[in-house]
Design a protein around this nucleic acid. Structure first.
Lengths: 138, 138
DNA sequence: TTTCAGATTTAGAACAAATATAAATCAAGA
DNA sequence: TCTTGATTTATATTTGTTCTAAATCTGAAA
């Protein structure tokens, strides 16, 4: 069950502690791009002594290892995405949902822009999502 | 001299106070995408009672009016760009300079992605800039 | 087993950017 | 000149994040 995740961490030289496995699992099973707060709130029930500092530590370790990625789509707080590969995101100003968005960008593929070497990309679209557009107006 | 800027603010219904004109002028004459701190430090000398709160207020007013734009390219602090139109940015991990980047993106032009209506776009490239690449290695 | 060393977790303090508040100041019209 | 509303200002507060140091865990060595 956790075997895959354990292996994933081991490959990156990260000790597969319970806390790390639990955070990674939660993130992998989520589709909402949760914040630290949301992850912490969701998990503290199951693991009484679970600390918010651990969530911060773990997300940093996983991000640096390239297993997940951090989104700064909201100025106030970071969101986390279980997919580490380059893809884009849409933020709905009405419902605040964050959607993955697949765009085939030649600049990204080339890995260069105006002489600068691209190592990472974050592209954020803001507006009204399909769901909210159907529901109400504005 | 300030006539243009005064007119710019008036058109948006913003009272052209000295503080606002000064912040806008500083931003328009800069190419570094400065932070609140940098703007405040640069201007407080000339205007003794100038307050950091005013910088925050002013940048918010100008951003909402669509006269400038806010960049969340660094997680810790916001940067400001005198150009309100959609264009992209490159952040150098070595020198921390922020470059404007012009990309002709069909998705942006279309104004839609996967059914979502795009109202704003922020695209950030991270890596090693041309200047730093020439200089040293890594 | 027991001991030890290093890594990890934890709680809480500290920090920094940003926002909120409330008083002071300013500007324009009556 | 007076009044009113907007703006600025200094300061307090909030909030997400990082830092710190003690506690805990884990695995290897004795």
């Amino acid at each position: 069950m956790d075997e895959e995740r354990i292996e994933k961490l081991r490959e990156k030289g990260i000790a597969p502690t319970i806390q790390r496995l639990v955070v990674l699992q939660y993130l992998e099973e989520s589709t909402t791009h949760p914040t630290v707060e949301e992850i912490y709130e969701a998990l503290k029930g199951q693991y009484p002594t679970f600390s918010k500092a651990t969530v911060y530590n773990t997300l940093q370790v996983l991000t640096q290892a390239g297993l997940i990625q951090e989104l700064t789509i909201e100025k106030e707080k970071a969101h986390y995405d279980p997919r580490p590969d380059i893809h884009h995101h849409f933020f709905c100003r009405r419902c605040h949902r964050i959607y993955d968005v697949e765009i085939d960008c030649s600049v990204v593929k080339r890995g260069m822009v105006e002489g600068h070497k691209i190592e990472m990309v974050q592209a954020y679209f803001y507006g009204l999502c399909a769901r909210c557009r159907e529901e109400g107006d504005a």
